[in-house]
């Protein structure tokens, strides 16, 4: 059994981290102790195995498709972000988000006629038919468009981000919405197919994510912000159709 101290020497030797004196002492010990030689050889073989494992990894092609919009978009436009954030600081942006795990099965009937009129801006018609096996990722329109301005009459799919399917009543992961100092209520469809969430954002960070029983907050907004949301989880839906549809519009025009 090789002691820990010797293992550290062997490990450093493997990485070329020994000084001349340490290397000389190790050489002496290797001549005398076959167990240490075997320990070193085993360490080297494991290292080769790990390297081979790393080189053998092949990312699935679907990753290329998921990342394609980013690859085509080139560098992010920081100034544009900053400008949008400044305007957004004085605004509240309402974003409708709908879970699409049942696309193709029942279609969408997210809102009832008794709901407030302003919520209609988030009402989504049936989404365009999509290949259920198609990758989920930000659609190119979000990343390539300088100033997306969907109108009330012409709601628009701006981004599909995924995956999204989370246990009813809980969110296990939310990250990165890059807008500073703005409160963004996000409404998910309530009912058999989804949940309603309210994301509270401060200084660009999600500070709360609260499942609600009813329809989420609505408010006026005088500017559109670019929004990138990523939510992941497990447990809801059929596991085939996942994603988030985001729409927004400029109000007060």
């Amino acid at each position: 059994m090789i002691d820990e101290k010797t293992d550290e020497i062997l490990s450093r030797h493997l990485d070329g981290d020994l000084d001349a004196e340490e290397a000389r002492l190790l050489t002496e010990r290797l001549k005398r102790d076959p167990a240490i030689v075997e320990g070193l050889n085993e360490m080297q073989r494991l290292r080769q195995s790990l390297r081979q494992l790393a080189l053998d990894e092949r990312p699935p092609k679907v990753l290329d498709q998921m990342v394609r919009p980013l690859r085509r978009a080139g560098r992010p436009m920081r100034q544009r972000w900053a400008a949008a954030a400044l305007v957004a600081a004085a605004a509240v942006v309402v974003v409708g988000v709908i879970v699409v795990e049942e696309i193709g099965r029942t279609g969408w009937m997210p809102w009832t006629q008794t709901e407030k009129a302003e919520r209609q801006i988030f009402a989504l018609s049936n989404l365009p038919a999509r290949d259920p096996d198609a990758p989920i990722g930000a659609v190119e329109s979000l990343l390539s468009r300088e100033d997306p301005e969907p109108t009330l009459a012409e709601p628009e799919l701006l981004e599909m981000i995924g995956p999204l399917n989370f246990p009813p009543g809980s969110i296990d992961f939310v990250m990165a919405i890059k807008i500073d100092e703005v409160q963004i209520p996000i409404s998910f469809v309530e009912g058999a197919r989804g949940l309603e969430l309210v994301l509270e954002i401060e200084q660009g960070q999600v500070v709360s994510c609260t499942p609600q029983d009813g329809i989420g907050n609505t408010s006026t907004a005088d500017e559109i912000c670019r929004l990138m949301i990523s939510i992941a989880g497990t447990g809801l839906g059929d596991g085939q159709h996942r994603g988030v549809v985001v729409r927004w519009k400029r109000e007060g025009r």
């Binding site: 980013l70 992010p76 990523s230 992941a232």
Partner: peptide
């Protein structure tokens, strides 16, 4: 891993500047 990679490259993209 696929989910994670998507997010990691999104973060990289955002952080390029």
């Amino acid at each position: 891993a696929l989910d994670a990679c998507q997010e990691i490259f999104l973060r990289i993209w955002r952080g390029l500047d």
